[in-house]
Design a protein around this nucleic acid. Structure first.
Length: 557
RNA sequence: UGCCCGAUGGUGUAAUGGCAGCACGAAUGGUUCUGGCCCAUUUAGUCUAGGUUCGAGUCCUAGUCGGGCAGCCA
């Protein structure tokens, strides 16, 4: 670990705890509820939980927080494991909160015996009335002073399935006037008859989050239970249980701010809505901030981890620029991604003085690393160039192709535009050009400079590709910033996906799903899982940084 | 008109009573067979008012602003 790098506040706490002898090494846990897919916000928690443990020689458990059988499913426990592993982490133990049901139940009995919990027959609504408001104290339940014997009997019968859901709950007996609502005799067990995905019909009562989480931490010997800010108000309750139960270990809960990113939404509810209403193709749609979506889009685990690290950690709500994620991706792939030439928006150029035969030119797979080898690219009389690489009436400082102008075809030769061919509507349909035979190999004996180098592909020797061009899913930095009566869906970016047929170098026909490339001058791309031999599908992960496009992109038309 | 938490450039994050720094973004220039990468430069910040102190972004008080909390969700 770098000694002089600044520490975040949780690292500081852990270091203090080690220095004072409170702990030898930190033991953490990542505790998702298996009721949905992980997103990049979870990636922050994952990197924190696993990262802290690793940094200080401890370990981290993966714990499925499965205390609500009505919402959870095995489908999710598989995807969660896959996503955590993909991010590059390995857990010490895979646990389930449901593994601890018996112990947690016994602790509830303990509380009852101690006179610190009671069975309450109030309905959900009645409990709500009794809870009071933010400014007024609550009222005690009429069932609050039942005898321990009666409570025990009732609680056992609740668990045997004798009562309907909602008929009774078990509540901790704390303080109905407490300014923190969480301590106003919170419900700790409720009746649920839905079978649990792991324990089946064994139980008819299930512990609430507050009664399961801290105790699960205690059982596992968790030293630092890291969670997001909305649980801050629950910490006094978390501690109350730890203090009032004969737990084998006392964990400490520490909260941090959850991660938001510009131009996206992060709540499970909203992501679910995007999927259900078919605004995206599924949880792994490459525009989704889910881990599986990022993976499919082409982001690397390294880039996601770096992004999370760069975003930092604190207790104030953070909204990080999406640009930072893309920066991390480009930084990672700059030195890794194989380079290829692909024309996304083709404009045909006929090189009138070019021989009929195909000529082959050598292109580096990764110019900065000769060890990565090269491939031969076929140049023919007719080629495609990017439509935006030609302008009939170029502005100053445009150094691509224009009538009478000369550019370098990457790795091949210099061409000069001699003629612009248009259709009846005046659209440019084709260009004529001549090449300088002395420029073969892309330099000339006279060493003359050409300002522009553009990518190209043979019009006759190429492979067509379905390329999916992604842009942010929302057109507003904060999609939730809406007028009265509107929702985040009104901020969906109608142009978040454009599908084009592109033409690429021939070997791309064999590209495998998951394979990543830099298409020179265009961006980073990743072969989609929909890809088939003969029908290659490629996602644009992100564009290259583009000064020209930013400055003149719109005006240049 | 309750309780809890927070407030440093556009964004994120450091400075732990002693020169407000780093990264992203933005801008400018250099370099270049990718208008990429790289290099250099620039831009821009301590919420307010008091107090403690030789000295306050940091400590104290009050205020302002922002976030969270009234599921038998997590």
């Amino acid at each position: 670990m770098p000694e002089n790098a600044s520490k975040n506040f949780i690292e500081e706490i852990v270091e203090e705890n080690i220095a004072s002898g409170l702990i030898k090494t930190p033991i953490t846990r990542f505790p998702p509820e298996p009721n949905g897919y992980l997103h990049i916000g979870h990636a922050k928690a994952i990197c924190l939980d696993f990262g802290i443990a690793k940094e200080y020689g401890g370990y981290c458990n993966l714990r499925m927080d499965d205390t609500n059988p009505t919402k959870e499913d095995v489908e999710y426990v598989d995807s969660i494991q896959e996503d955590v592993r993909w991010l590059g982490w390995e857990w010490k133990n895979l646990y389930y909160a449901s593994d601890y049901y018996q112990q947690i139940y016994d602790w509830a009995i303990h509380l009852i015996r101690e006179g610190k919990a009671f069975v309450c027959d109030l309905s959900a609504d009645e409990i709500r009335w009794h809870r009071g408001t933010l400014t007024e104290p609550g009222k005690e339940s009429p069932y609050r002073n039942r005898s321990a014997e009666e409570n025990l009997d009732l609680f056992e019968r609740m668990n045997k399935g004798e009562f309907a859901e909602g008929a009774r709950v078990l509540r901790a007996k704390i303080d109905m006037a407490h300014p923190n609502l969480n301590l106003r005799d919170p419900v700790i067990y409720r009746i649920v008859h839905t079978p649990h995905h792991r324990t089946g019909n064994t139980w008819h009562v299930y512990p609430m989050y507050d009664f399961a989480h801290g105790q699960s931490d205690a059982i596992e010997g968790i030293t630092h239970s890291l969670c997001t800010l909305e649980f801050e108000d629950h910490r006094p309750l978390y501690n109350w249980f730890i203090e009032n139960l004969p737990v084998p270990h006392k964990p400490r809960q520490i909260e941090f701010a959850r991660l938001n990113i510009t131009y996206t939404v992060m709540s499970k509810r909203k992501l679910l809505q995007l999927v259900k209403d078919k605004h995206v193709s599924g949880w792994d749609d490459p525009r989704m901030p889910t881990i599986c979506g990022l993976r499919r889009r082409g982001y690397t685990p390294e880039s996601v981890r770096e992004f999370v690290a760069k975003a930092g950690l604190s207790k104030r709500p953070q909204t990080v620029d999406l640009a930072l994620l893309d920066f991390c991706l480009r930084q990672d792939l700059e030195e890794k991604a194989t380079r290829r030439m692909v024309v996304l928006d083709p404009l045909k150029v006929v090189i009138t003085n070019f021989p009929e035969e195909t000529e082959l030119y050598e292109g580096q797979n990764l110019p900065s690393d000769p060890a990565r080898g090269s491939r031969m690219v076929p140049l023919t009389r007719e080629i495609y160039i990017e439509r935006e690489d030609f302008m009939e009436n170029p502005p100053k400082k445009f150094f691509r192709l224009y009538p009478g102008g000369e550019v370098r075809l990457r790795y091949a030769c210099y061409i000069t535009c001699t003629e612009v061919i248009k259709d009846a509507e005046g659209n440019i349909t084709e260009l004529r050009a001549t090449f300088d035979p002395l420029s073969r190999g892309a330099t000339t004996p006279d060493n003359r400079k050409v300002k522009g180098t553009i990518h190209w592909v043979s019009a006759t020797e190429n492979t067509p590709l379905e390329v999916r061009l992604y842009d942010p899913l929302f057109s507003k930095e904060n999609p939730d910033d809406v007028e009265e009566g509107k929702s985040f869906l009104d901020n969906l970016n109608p142009e978040s996906l454009k599908v084009v047929t592109a033409y690429g170098e021939n070997d791309l026909a064999h590209a495998q799903p998951g394979e990543r490339f830099q298409f020179e001058r265009k961006g980073y791309f990743c072969v989609d899982k929909d890809s088939r031999p003969g029908a290659v599908v490629i996602n644009r992960t992100t564009t290259l940084r583009d000064v020209w496009g930013k400055r003149f992109g719109d005006k240049a038309e």
